[in-house]
Design a protein around this nucleic acid. Structure first.
Length: 277
DNA sequence: ACGAGAACCTGTTTGC
DNA sequence: TGCAAACAGGTTCTCG
């Protein structure tokens, strides 16, 4: 489920359950996800108080009162589910981590494909962590403007689609929101990245900020499984202009073919060849 | 150094 | 109906 708006939705859902609460029990139910858990995973978390939840790109950051930080990535299929009032069912096959709080909440981390990961860092060295260090600017930060994006694209010979999928260019976009932002900005996914300068870059930044903010307000996008930690669906998927809409009419013009699909870097791209140049 | 493709997994949908 | 192939919200390693 997870691009920036989905991870932000998870953060907002988990914050009231975790912030200020103590983890009375942490159960690690397998040795690895995409990578091994840190050796001291349970020891670093169990019995500790959560201070606050943050997010960087698609990483959920759980800051502990000890100063350590749990870094969680949801991969392609990771999700959290919260049960309160002692109503948690037994963990299922793909519930790889169980957290219990002193207030009686139970959290399952569920991830069938196991592309997710969990790691620990020291809070004061978080920006130096290998996973965090390589990430580009946060798109919703006011400092991220057309000039900032243009500068990062100026020497990129790949396509604008590939450049935006690269977390080092700008943080948190994935296949859905790249397709949607390029549609809103009227830019072809096949355009060379270095040609996105000046007004084109400004339009693209505005489109990125708008689509992400709208998606967060909608509780993210729920494609196949549920996403909000309560089990409720997000509903931004109903607002997609192009993603997953191959063959449907373009919502913004009367072109013949409607929405087309092509494959770039092994991923589906959806776009309108008339509106996006 | 950069960019494209493969690999990592499981589950679901599509096509013959 | 049944089986195989294709496809899925991501990242990271390898190869050219």
């Amino acid at each position: 489920m997870p691009e920036l708006p989905e991870v932000e939705t998870v953060r907002l859902g988990l914050a009231p359950v975790l912030e200020g609460h103590t983890l009375t029990r942490v159960e690690q139910r397998r040795a690895d996800l995409r990578r091994p858990f840190p050796d001291d995973f349970v020891q670093a978390l169990q019995g500790q108080k959560v201070e606050r939840l943050a997010r960087r790109a698609k990483y959920l950051l759980i800051h502990l009162a000890t100063g350590r930080v749990l870094i969680v990535h949801l991969g392609m299929s990771g999700s959290f589910r919260v049960h309160t009032n002692g109503e948690a069912p037994p963990p299922g096959k793909h519930d790889h981590v169980v957290f219990e709080t002193a207030a009686g909440a139970t959290l399952f981390y569920h991830d069938p494909r196991r592309f997710g990961s969990m790691d620990l860092a020291d809070g004061d060295a978080l920006e130096d962590h290998p996973l965090i260090r390589v990430i580009g600017p946060e798109p919703l930060n006011p400092a991220f403007d057309g000039a900032a994006l243009a500068a990062r694209l100026a020497d990129r010979k790949t396509t604008i689609k590939a450049a935006l999928m690269d977390q080092g260019t700008v943080a948190g976009l994935g296949n859905i929101y790249v397709c949607e932002a390029l549609f809103r900005a009227g830019l072809s996914p096949k355009r060379k990245a270095y040609t996105v300068q000046g007004d084109r870059a400004a339009r693209l930044v505005a489109a990125i900020k708008d689509v992400l903010a709208e998606a967060i307000r909608s509780g993210g996008s729920s494609l196949r499984d549920h996403k909000q930690v309560s089990g409720e669906m997000g509903y931004f998927q109903h607002a997609f202009a192009v993603y997953g809409r191959e063959g449907e009419p373009c919502p913004d013009c009367t072109c013949d073919g409607g929405i087309r699909r092509l494959v770039q870097q092994g991923r589906s791209t959806f776009y309108c060849a008339t509106r996006q140049r």
